Amino acid sequence: MAEDQSPEEDRPDQTLGEIGLWHFAPYLMNRIMGRYNANLQGSVRAQSLTTAKMRTLAVLAVVPGLTINELSVYAVTEQSTMSRTLEAMEKSGLIRREARASDARVREIYLTDAGRAEFDAVWPTMYARYQELFTGIDDAERAAFVGTLQKMLKNVRLHDL
């Protein structure tokens, strides 16, 4: 099947060749995010931020007080990578860890003022790359697309149980 053709029917036994890469959503999502991350990394190279650090700053700017496990999920990063990233960020004064009030064994992670300033410095670049993703896409299409992604995320989470 040609790249620009869509499958004529949705059968459970379709092959990837029949679907085609240009109609296989996981391929498209990975390809888009791979390019987005590469473009973003190139744009923030001067700030010496890795993708993991950038994601950590962004997530903690919106959802403070996460555990390392929660942060790994939100930042889409392996826990071992997140652990190393947090150690480096803590040494740099970008984050702090605090014992959870209800359970002192659990450590919650927060941005420091320096971490917030670092996020505030990188956000304009992150937002500009985000806006580029939606060039030529109107508000209604964007809202429908984001709604579909949210449904897909819920579907994926169902399999995590």
Rank of each mutant, 00 (worst) to 15 (best):
V76T: 11
D103N: 13
E132Y: 04
G136R: 03
F119S: 07
V73S: 09
I19M: 14
E98W: 01
R11H: 12
F134C: 05
L28R: 13
V76I: 03
E78Q: 07
F145E: 14
R129G: 10
S43D: 15
E9G: 07
V59D: 09
E118D: 10
A38R: 12
A52P: 12
A128K: 11
D160P: 00
S102H: 01
L133S: 14
S43Y: 05
A52G: 12
N37T: 08
R35M: 09
E78I: 00
M82A: 08
I68C: 14
V106M: 05
V73E: 15
D139R: 10
D13V: 01
N37I: 02
W123L: 06
A38P: 00
D120P: 09
T67A: 10
R35F: 12
F24Q: 03
H159G: 08
M126T: 09
S92F: 02
A101Y: 08
A104H: 09
D160H: 08
N39W: 02
M152C: 09
T148V: 01
L71K: 08
L21C: 09
R142M: 13
L21F: 07
M54L: 15
L86P: 01
A121K: 04
Y130Q: 12
A61I: 00
D4W: 01
Y130E: 15
W123C: 06
M1Q: 12
S92T: 00
E98S: 05
R97H: 09
I68L: 14
A101V: 07
D139E: 15
T77S: 13
D103R: 12
G42N: 07
L133M: 15
E70R: 04
H159T: 06
A140L: 05
P124Q: 05
R129L: 07
E132I: 00
D103S: 07
K151F: 04
N37S: 10
D13W: 02
T112G: 12
T67Y: 08
L161C: 06
G34R: 04
Q41Y: 00
T15S: 14
T56L: 05
A117N: 15
R35W: 11
M82S: 08
T125P: 05
K91F: 04
W22P: 03
V63Q: 13
E87I: 01
T85D: 05
A88F: 01
R116N: 12
S92N: 15
E78P: 13
A2T: 01
L28D: 14
L40F: 07
S6T: 10
Q79T: 10
D13H: 02
T15P: 01
I95P: 00
M54V: 06
Y74R: 12
